[in-house]
Nucleic acid binder design. Structure first.
Length: 283
DNA sequence: GCCCAGGAGTGTG
DNA sequence: CACACTCATGGG
């Protein structure tokens, strides 16, 4: 079935392709294909419109897409706030279309535990292997992300065969200890308490807790620090040190929209490394 | 072949 | 607190 939504500003390719979600792939014709909930989507941006087709499944696809892309975020307000930072100010406008995504909490938790010490193509492959091995078949080659009770039936060895390596045992432990009620409780927590709860989960440390807070639970003040962000903070702000120290710097400097600042810095730093272009510079 | 990846867990100073 | 070491493995 067809769907169409209006979201502005939005750069669909930047948002789906910058490593927040691991389930969408660019097509040769510029469209994006991926799985959202129980739907397989093919979506395409035409100006401020997003249109595409979704496999049937009952749910309102318009709302699912609006939620995924956080259509209600006031990007102008966010950019005005972050634009007071002199390092970010010159470049953020060119990334107005980069939006934080809102993922399913369970899928986000597992995906970012898999993401530890792996690169994005490999993470996508691991998630795909879990989905095709233990998820529901949606249509040709498309599988939903496995729910907890289904994934819980997988042995550690089966998980390893999905390419997870040592991450297999974390996934196993999470299936046994984090149920739907626990996730529902976490949905109602403040960022500070959510973060503490997440870090108690096997395989979840500072960085994964912040990714899951940001992309899974929608806490825009979360600021995940990976190797790219470490480089960006060192290069642009002369800030180095422990996770805790850098986290406090980010909270002080970027405030309630630190998550957006993080995504801008992350994207910029990767562009600098891979394409040798960037929009931010020191001072 | 080499280097690195959206790190976490554990032990030590 | 901060640091050092180990953990497996595939992608560029």
């Amino acid at each position: 079935m067809k769907f169409e939504v209006e979201i502005a500003p939005l750069d669909l390719g930047l948002t789906l392709g910058c490593g927040q979600t691991f389930r969408f792939k660019a097509q040769l014709d510029g469209a994006w294909s991926g799985v959202l909930g129980e739907h397989h989507l093919v979506l395409r941006q035409i100006g401020t419109r997003i249109e595409g087709t979704a496999s049937p499944g009952g749910k309102n696809v318009d709302e699912l897409v609006l939620d995924l892309l956080r259509a209600k975020d006031d990007i102008d307000k966010i950019q005005r706030a972050l634009g007071r930072d002199k390092v970010l100010a010159p470049g953020i406008r060119s990334m107005r279309g980069l939006r934080i995504v809102k993922l399913d909490e369970w899928e986000c938790l597992i995906s970012y535990v898999l993401a530890t010490y792996a690169n994005i193509p490999r993470i996508m492959k691991m998630v795909e292997a879990l989905a095709s091995g233990f998820g529901r078949r949606i249509e040709r080659g498309a599988y939903s992300f496995p729910e907890r009770k289904t994934l819980a039936r997988a042995s550690v060895n089966e998980l390893r065969r999905c390419g997870l390596g040592y991450r297999a045992e974390y996934v196993r432990a999470i299936c046994d200890t984090v149920d739907e009620d626990a996730l529902a409780r976490m949905c109602r927590m403040t960022y500070a308490n959510l973060r503490k709860s997440l870090i108690e989960i096997p395989g979840v440390g500072d960085k994964v807790a912040d990714c899951v807070s940001l992309f899974g639970f929608g806490k825009l003040e979360a600021f995940p620090i990976d190797v790219w962000i470490e480089r960006a903070l060192a290069r642009l702000y002369r800030q180095r040190g422990s996770y805790r120290r850098l986290m406090e710097f980010a909270a002080e400097r970027f405030g309630e929209y630190a998550g957006y600042a993080q995504e801008y810095l992350y994207h910029n730093e990767r562009m600098l490394a891979h394409e040798n272009v960037c929009v931010f510079s020191e001072k």
